Amino acid sequence: MVVDDQTSMRAMIRRTLQDLGFKDIRDKAGPVEALAAIKSDRVHLIISDYNMPDMDGLQFLEAVRGDAVIGKTVFIMLTGSADKEIVQKAAALGVNNYVVKPFAPAALKEKIERVFGELT
């Protein structure tokens, strides 16, 4: 599940994931609708932007981690900021990895492989 309020960023991440061999890629423009979708139809990976209206990436991560059913879902946070405070808060909430935008497809692949192992 790709969660980002920018349509172009969602499309770019989808293409990258398809190029890496992912088949079932869903996306949502915001965390509120993503949470509902993930609860009704589980996913193995969430790639979420940090800076979004209504609920930021940290609040979204906290909501995912606080849910008994989806709490262990792999969560990678994207942000345009390398702010150490955000990184530390995300780590404290249990983020699996962190990618600073803009990023190359190889960087996203490397972050995913750190969690899942080598992609074939």
Score class of each variant (00 low, 15 high):
Ala37Tyr: 13
Ala90Cys: 09
Ile25Phe: 12
Lys28Thr: 03
Ser40Ile: 10
Thr73Asn: 01
Ile38Arg: 00
Asn97Asp: 14
Val69Pro: 00
Glu85Met: 04
Tyr50Ser: 01
Gly57Ser: 10
Glu33Cys: 01
Lys89Asn: 12
Gly80Arg: 12
Pro102Lys: 10
Val74Cys: 10
Tyr50Trp: 15
Arg65Gln: 13
Val99His: 10
Ala63Pro: 06
Glu62Lys: 12
Met52Pro: 02
Gln88Leu: 10
Ala68Val: 15
Tyr50Met: 08
Val69Thr: 11
Tyr50Ile: 08
Lys72Asn: 09
Ala37Leu: 11
Glu85Ile: 05
Ala34Trp: 14
Asp54Gly: 01
Val69Gly: 11
Glu33Lys: 06
Ala36Trp: 03
Arg65Phe: 11
Ala29Arg: 04
Asn51Leu: 13
Val43Lys: 13
Tyr98Leu: 04
Arg26Trp: 06
Ala82Pro: 04
Gln59Met: 15
Ile76Cys: 08
Lys84Phe: 06
Gln59Asp: 15
Arg26Glu: 14
Glu62Val: 00
Ala82Glu: 12
Val74Gln: 02
Ile46Thr: 14
Val74Pro: 02
Asp56Cys: 09
Val95Asn: 05
Leu58Ala: 08
Ala90Tyr: 03
Gln59Ile: 07
Gly30Lys: 00
Lys89Ile: 10
Phe75Pro: 00
Gly30Asn: 11
Ser40Asp: 14
Ala92Pro: 02
Val43Ile: 11
Arg65Thr: 00
Leu93Val: 07
Met55Tyr: 15
Tyr50Cys: 09
Lys84Leu: 10
Leu35Tyr: 07
Leu61Gly: 00
Asn51Phe: 04
Val95Ala: 15
Ser81Asn: 09
Val95Ser: 15
Asn96Trp: 13
Pro53Tyr: 12
Tyr50Val: 06
Val69Lys: 15
Val87Ser: 01
Ala90Thr: 07
Ala82Phe: 13
Asn96Phe: 14
Asp83Leu: 08
